[in-house]
Design a protein around this nucleic acid. Structure first.
Lengths: 166, 166
DNA sequence: GTCAAGAGTCTTGACGTCGAGACACATCGA
DNA sequence: TCGATGTGTCTCGACGTCAAGACTCTTGAC
């Protein structure tokens, strides 16, 4: 592992090491970076989506519908579990997406309590364009890795994330 | 890289692959996991801190003060840059931390516009306990990695995060 | 059939964050 | 000394999320 340049996390970890020499602070070298990376990604996404006039939360919902495949329909409950927000939040999101004409609510044919949320043609077009832009941005970020770095990183992350699947 | 078990991200990526065969969706294998990991970490932290009756945002601020070293004093502006929130948010946070007796505001001696936020003994005790708990939780999560996995993961993340330091 | 328990969706109020701008003071050049 | 510009902190209104609970309909046992 080359030493390139001291980054912000290195400084934070060094500070903790100095202040709490009784602790093993190595986990911070991983998790602080995960945190910061997630934050930066948020920003990158926001700017990527802004070109197509989409908000991050809109993409969250639309992309779940998009990757479900034709006819691009899911229940609010399914959207809740896929996007990891609460039901109240999802109701609010669907309301706003419906106002903007990106989805429509349909009554479920076989459960009268149920509702199905469906992508409109405009919603489909927007989410496809956003995904194209997003992948372009993300690919450029990963270009900093050496060959083999991408799958290695994915595999390591997968192992760690797997710890939470209980 | 062993194939262990298909995880949620694998399913998401496979779905995109099927729906958009024109795109290279490999970046998702990294960034989707970063996202999910960050979310899970949030939860893990919240429960770890709950034992010491601290909120995540409180720890954010208190830990910046703690690792600054004695006398555990920073300006609101410094706290803003370290915690990556806006100034309005920081004012609000300091207000609440002051009410709870975990920090105090002092006038800066050499800049009459300025303020210095200082950890109280109670704040110091709480943040130290929280850090101890947090590292225990994080270390256990990383135990899933093989030897050498931790530094490898940290190095890869560092390269990627470095892309944003502009 | 009927009733209890469960499932799916939506409503409500509280809360934390953001972004823009206000205000006080500092700094620097003329 | 004076004004212009920069810096540090705080105020305010809008917004999105959450948690808890209300409501409607379904399911299964009796």
């Amino acid at each position: 592992m080359d030493q390139q340049h001291e980054d912000e996390v290195d400084r934070i970890v060094a500070a903790w090491q100095r202040e709490r020499p009784d602790l093993d602070v190595e986990p911070l070298t991983v998790f602080s970076r995960v945190d910061r990376l997630a934050r930066h990604l948020d920003r990158a996404r926001r700017t990527a989506f802004a070109r197509g006039h989409l908000e991050t939360w809109e993409f969250d919902v639309l992309s779940a519908l998009r990757r479900a495949g034709e006819p691009y329909r899911l229940s609010p409950g399914a959207l809740v579990t896929q996007t990891l927000v609460t039901s109240g939040t999802m109701t609010n999101r669907i309301d706003r997406l419906e106002e903007r004409g990106l989805v429509v609510r349909r009554r479920s044919p076989d459960d009268r309590r149920g509702v199905l949320v469906e992508l409109t043609p405009d919603g489909l077009e927007r989410v496809d364009a956003a995904m194209t832009d997003l992948l372009a941005v993300e690919a450029r970020i990963l270009d900093a890795l050496e060959p083999g770095g991408r799958p290695a990183l994915a595999a390591l992350l997968r192992t760690v994330v797997g710890q939470f699947d209980d």
